[in-house]
Design a binder for these strands. Structure first.
Lengths: 251, 251
DNA sequence: CTTGACATTGACGCAACGTCAACCTGTAAC
DNA sequence: GTTACAGGTTGACGTTGCGTCAATGTCAAG
């Protein structure tokens, strides 16, 4: 009556592979009932039943350690599955945001406003904005800004832009993940952003540094050329609000 | 003017880690511009620019090999992103189906109709159905069936059920993945199902084996106790239809 | 006795680094 | 001069669940 099966027989009956069974043995999830003199693994009815349950849980996506806990440590399958479902839900929202991000980038690429190919060495699209800057802040402001920029070495320019680029990346990421503007992460980003702005020469930073930053924030939102740096107006709004909170609590 | 940076400086400026940069060097994705006498990696402006593009693409979820192809082999970023988006879309639908599957199982667990705990050794809920079988097919039919089942060794019973269990699993899987009833996979499953039925003794199988299978299929759909084996009526319908197609083309 | 099917135990591979470990270097401080 | 200490280097393991060789022993059949 006491029937034993070889590893292949078990694998075929259960619709899996012998490699998998040896793996389950190796990690202690499903040891065979006994070993023959020849060293062959031999499985009994209890092992087959256990295997069936293992495969059923695996089918649902549970990890092998979790399956072991359910089968051996009396962990409730219901709890394990509920936890897994939560994980998967998080995964789907993450994926959806990633897809949205890709779509935005693809659209930008098609429009030729590729963040991959442009503005690497143009310093904030510097000269491009000459007229506008002169109009809004006066010829003097542009001259100071221009002088400052040209005084930097290539290395400094590059480092400055590198930081800007990293910053933009991280802002977009934070926006996509929907973090809280007042939260730790967003505020850390705001701090980095402010630090980056401190690199500007004294002459360009007005006395009211806080007010200056708030003004910049507004500009990010209102000017689509800046807004694209932060995934559009939504992102720019996020950046502005995070900066605002930061300024109010730290400056 | 030719400025070089150490690995830490680059890492900080770009918002990544030195470990990552050494990894990118190791796989040939971003070799440093030069090596100092001390063996230190030294990066130049071109490397920083390349790094920026790498990080931007990575941010979107592209794999490092794909990034390398985009940067070096002139593969279009647009194409790479389109392909990635497709992958991710598939992923989300997969995840959604998995979540649905988990929900079904959890509901079943809560109702106490746990596939984990029941009917391992009861042989098709055999005796439980005695009256019903006698009523529908006659006392004779039940007696034959009962004799057949009792004549099997434990090993045979177990193997038979094991196959049934694996079959059910795979059916549910196919249903959840939305495969085509006439497709290769569903037909292979139907073939396995029919093979499994062939284990029944001759006495139980009528002359019209094809018709017998079609009748079974209908029963799977109409009787909720069978339907639960295949994820409810929808699944059972799928099984019935797949069997029907199989019978019509192979029997 | 040979052949083939099936068994065994390693060990690598996959994705993208994080995280030690063990050991130099460069620079500032005592 | 030496002592720290920060920062550089090259390995190598760990992560998830097996697939896939590789090298070799065992068993039933011809």
């Amino acid at each position: 009556m006491k029937q034993l099966w070889t590893i292949q027989e078990v694998a075929k009956a259960a619709g899996t592979t012998s490699r998998t069974l040896r793996h389950y043995d190796a990690i202690g999830l499903l040891p065979p009932a006994s070993l023959g003199e020849n060293g062959y693994r031999l499985y009994d009815a209890a092992a087959l039943i256990r295997l069936q349950r293992i495969l059923a849980l695996r089918n649902l996506g549970l990890g092998l350690p979790d399956i072991a806990r359910v089968l051996d440590d009396g962990l409730s399958a219901e709890d394990a599955l509920a936890a897994l479902e939560q994980q998967l839900l998080l995964e789907t929202t993450r994926l959806e945001r990633q897809i949205a991000s890709i779509r935005r980038t693809r659209i930008a690429l098609q429009k030729g406003r590729s963040p991959m190919t442009e503005n690497m060495f143009d310093g904030f699209q510097h000269e491009q904005y000459k007229e506008e800057v002169e109009e809004r802040w006066g010829a003097d402001a542009y001259a100071r800004s221009d002088a400052w920029w040209k005084s930097k070495s290539d290395a400094e320019k590059l480092a400055w832009q590198q930081k800007l680029s990293a910053l933009n990346n991280d802002w977009q990421d934070a926006v996509a993940r929907g973090v809280d503007v007042t939260g730790e992460e967003a505020q850390a980003l705001a701090a980095r952003h402010v630090d980056w702005l401190r690199d500007l020469p004294q002459a360009m930073v007005p006395d009211d540094f806080g007010g200056y930053i708030l003004g910049l924030g507004e500009m990010y939102v209102n000017d689509p050329r800046f807004a694209t740096n932060y995934s559009g107006e939504v992102g720019a709004t996020f950046v502005r609000d995070a900066l605002k909170v930061y300024v109010e609590t730290n400056l």
